[in-house]
Design a protein around this nucleic acid. Structure first.
Length: 467
DNA sequence: AAGAACGCCAACCGCATTCCC
DNA sequence: TGGGAATGCGGTTGGCGTTCT
């Protein structure tokens, strides 16, 4: 990296945004070994800190910021170089589930690793999973987070919805429950069977995207990537092999299901997919049906910040709902009415969310009856959620050329264009709207046009929504 | 074989917070 | 106590190497 740039000329031009004094003579770009030596020597003599003095006293043409970064990320003697070990990867997953994008805090828990390193690793991992259409967190991480959250709820009084969300947005403002991920280790042992591990990724993918749409598309690939095989393989190399098991099982045994649209798909069925009942996986879009994890999803919130909704959905009384982070979730979640305006607060960033917030408000005014949906229907919703979710995801992906392929917009665009085979589309909708399946008269679908129109209006598009 | 796509990662940037005078 | 400097942090960018088509 440093080779061809080692003789980068000093930055002569004054950056219009940067510090004029610094940028006028500070070198940028990759560090040379000579510069490294100077910096190391300086720190040895003077210790860390006072980074601006480095430039003054050592002759380095680097700003203090750059020196600090270089030292922290590359020159520190206690740095651990090389790829992350499986244990470290597992720890990162756990920490991210707990902390969100708090790279520095995560680095503090991983001796010898830097925040930048962890951040890069995570972002790469996310991309990989996203391309493979796999969840961010292994299901059992979600489960354990849920359990932890549940326990903490039993101890502490329930905060108000707003305060709860607010606290969660500031991870420093509350005590993060200590979650032990012992099960993950257990899981690693569960499926070390070669029979489960030696599944050719191509075979898996065939089944995923194969002609039998009813089954394969249950777990659609977000964007069939060039390197999908690598993506999936990488995911399967994750330390958590329960997740692995879940996917292998899902991918390898789809034909054993009588129908993916069975209306009586129960929590047991979910479990067979590796989705633990109550897992965040179901509702926070961190779990499959593989949500394309780009775009609307904000990764910085720890998954367990959403965990209440699962608990709620699985039978407990109403508890704070998650901040809705994803348009997809907004549209797909069968329990959207419960979110209502107090969940779509203006605190949420993002134009789409703002639009959705407005549309929800509009809708809620004429849809009060849904407020009364029972917890039973909630259970039904959740039990059927993955399937419905998948269906919508399918729609989202039917236009692979769309840059918004996994946005709500593309969902509608697809619908209008009927790019999905008719038979498929029709049956999908019928299954989706099976009478009696939802106690709320398919409200989640009924609401869609409003949300969609709002988004379309925002984007200046005519969705041609044929509702 | 060549170009495109992608992964990886170092480094930069802007903002927030802390420190110090 | 206010303001500037220093530091910390997280998001983003850009370049290079690798893989795929």
């Amino acid at each position: 990296m440093s080779k061809c740039h080692s003789d980068l000329s000093l930055v002569e031009e004054v950056s219009s945004r940067g510090n004029m004094r610094e940028s006028s003579h500070m070198k940028k770009g990759p560090w040379t070994s000579a510069e490294d030596a100077i910096l190391v020597d300086y720190v040895k003599k003077h210790g860390e800190g006072n980074w601006n003095a480095v430039q003054k006293n050592s002759g380095l043409s680097r700003c203090g910021k750059s020196c600090r970064l270089r030292w922290a990320n590359h020159l520190r003697p206690d740095l651990k170089k090389g790829v992350f070990t499986p244990e470290e990867e597992q720890r990162i997953i756990e920490l991210h589930a707990k902390l969100g994008n708090k790279w520095a805090r995560m680095a503090a828990e991983l001796p010898g690793r830097t925040d930048n390193e962890i951040k890069n690793y995570w972002n790469t991992r996310i991309k990989r999973l996203q391309r493979a259409g796999l969840p961010i967190y292994p299901p059992d991480v979600c489960l354990l987070m849920n359990r932890s959250q549940e326990e903490s709820h039993n101890v502490a009084s329930m905060p108000t919805r707003n305060s709860f969300g607010s606290n969660l947005l500031h991870s420093d403002a509350f005590e993060i429950p200590q979650v032990e991920f012992e099960n993950l280790e257990l899981n690693q042992q569960i499926l070390s069977s070669p029979a489960l591990l030696d599944i050719p990724a191509k075979t898996m993918l065939k089944r995923v995207v194969g002609p039998s749409h009813g089954y394969g598309l249950m777990f659609p690939i977000a964007h069939p990537p060039k390197r999908l095989r690598e993506s999936v393989s990488s995911y399967l190399s994750m330390p958590n092999q329960l997740t692995e098991y879940a996917y292998k099982k899902r991918y390898d045994e789809p034909y054993k299901l009588s129908s993916p649209y069975d209306s009586d798909l129960s929590t047991n069925d979910l479990s067979s997919f590796g989705i633990p009942p109550g897992s965040n996986a179901l509702l926070d879009s961190n779990f499959s049906p593989p949500e394309p994890m780009s775009g609307p999803i904000k990764l910085e919130l720890p998954s367990y910040q959403y965990s209440d909704i699962q608990q709620d959905s699985w039978g407990n009384p109403a508890v704070p709902l998650p901040l809705v982070e994803s348009v997809d979730t907004v549209i797909q979640s069968p329990s959207m009415e419960r979110v209502k305006s107090d969940c779509f607060t203006s605190q949420n960033t993002g134009l789409l969310e703002a639009v959705l917030y407005e549309s929800q408000k509009l809708n809620s005014s004429k849809d009060d009856s849904f407020q009364q949906s029972s917890s039973t229907s909630m259970l039904d919703d959740v039990a059927n959620f993955p399937l419905k979710h998948c269906e919508i995801e399918l729609e989202a992906h039917c236009d692979p050329n769309s840059p918004l392929a996994h946005s709500a917009t593309s969902v509608l665009r697809c619908k209008g264009k009927k790019e999905i085979p008719n038979q498929m589309a029709d049956s999908r909708l019928d299954d989706f709207l099976e009478p009696g399946q939802f106690g709320h008269e398919n409200r989640c679908v009924r609401d869609k046009p409003i949300v969609i129109d709002a988004i379309a209006a925002l984007l200046g598009e005519d969705t041609g929504c044929g509702y």
